[in-house]
Design a protein around this nucleic acid. Sequence first.
DNA 1: GTCAACAGGATTGTCTGACATTCTTGCAAT
DNA 2: ATTGCAAGAATGTCAGACAATCCTGTTGAC
Lengths: 223, 223
Amino acid sequence: MRPDLNLRISPRTVQQETVDKLRLAILSGLFQPGSRLIESQLCTQLGVSRPSLREALRSLEAERLIEIVPNRGPAIPALSWEEATAIYEVRELVEVEAAGRCASRIPAEQLRELEKSLSAFEEAASSNDSLAQVMTAADFYSIILANCGNPILEEVHRGLVARISFFRGRSMSLKGRAQSSLAEMREIYESIAAGDEKAARKASKRHLLKAKAAAKISMDSGV
Amino acid sequence: MRPDLNLRISPRTVQQETVDKLRLAILSGLFQPGSRLIESQLCTQLGVSRPSLREALRSLEAERLIEIVPNRGPAIPALSWEEATAIYEVRELVEVEAAGRCASRIPAEQLRELEKSLSAFEEAASSNDSLAQVMTAADFYSIILANCGNPILEEVHRGLVARISFFRGRSMSLKGRAQSSLAEMREIYESIAAGDEKAARKASKRHLLKAKAAAKISMDSGV
DNA sequence: GTCAACAGGATTGTCTGACATTCTTGCAAT
DNA sequence: ATTGCAAGAATGTCAGACAATCCTGTTGAC
């Protein structure tokens, strides 16, 4: 009897791919906030039928990446600064906790991954590619959240970050923001590497406060 | 120019009602964990077509109230104790924060509502109606979360609590649990009424730890 | 008797097409 | 310029269909 390797590769359905494509499109800022999404257009663009598309839209609605108003259809929500602030606050709560937990339990091999992702961000930070900056920074957090020992914390964090992804690109392109971000992230990394839970929390908190401030500035100046 | 009264009463669609009915059915424990949901059955029971039902299911899937495995369809997830623990931990993080914030900002009128809901729980606690106990206790938390000044915190909390609703009924029916729960909740109330943020956090934390312990006991003994 | 292959039924994934309801927009009339 | 209306566009919902996949009970082989 061969060991029951639970390798049942769950077949990717059209549904999942549709959701993924749409999510990616939204997160990468393809649609303007407030703009409406037309079902028939999306159907032809994505090559799926309307029922399938609507299933995908419901998933994204539950993730709060789109809003569906009855009889008006799906649209990209325009985040107010108040909502964004509320999200940043909860994100701080979650991320600080995760950083602290991570400091006392990350395995050595994952720590190396964290260092790598920090290097990747360093490289991106010295360029002007703000998309690369956002992506590599997201990698950095992901590793921390993945090693905090609590998958729910990770899940909640992912949901929150997705909803403010719109700001992140803008704030990262503020002059000097990437460099100071790098310094803050390095602090977080050093604390985690040292296994210093308290320091990790502090560093994480500092970083979040600055990121929030940068987001506010970029919002006030832009649009 | 008259003030823009945003009174557009959004019409309730069949979709929303379907989701609500299903969610209620799940939360009230109508389905056994692990049991599968048959689309065609649900369609006839709810009186909706399959495309509509599937939209509703996607919403619930995103809320993690059901799982949809490709080619196997929707099912009620069977929560492992590890997952439940993870959820309780994040819930503690969120609820403690909310209680603390609430203590320093709840308006007098809402405080009275909180007191009322505490009385309601007191009455339920002295009965043997564990459903009423769970419901009134949920009211109590809801008021706290609604007055913590951060709607996102409230949203996250609701999502977490929904996922462990299965345990709550069971643990509340443990002998003596309702009464000690009452004492803990009264402590929380007193702290909030006194505007003592620190005490509110502590009381909330104590309550959560005990609730978690009760859930564990009921899980080990039950099933 | 136990285990493996198989056939049939059940269920899901997805599509097409349709129609009533509701929103939007442009035009006409005052 | 504002109001009212009508045509068009878009959504909400349904019915029905069919292939792909899963589950189950039966048959057959050892």
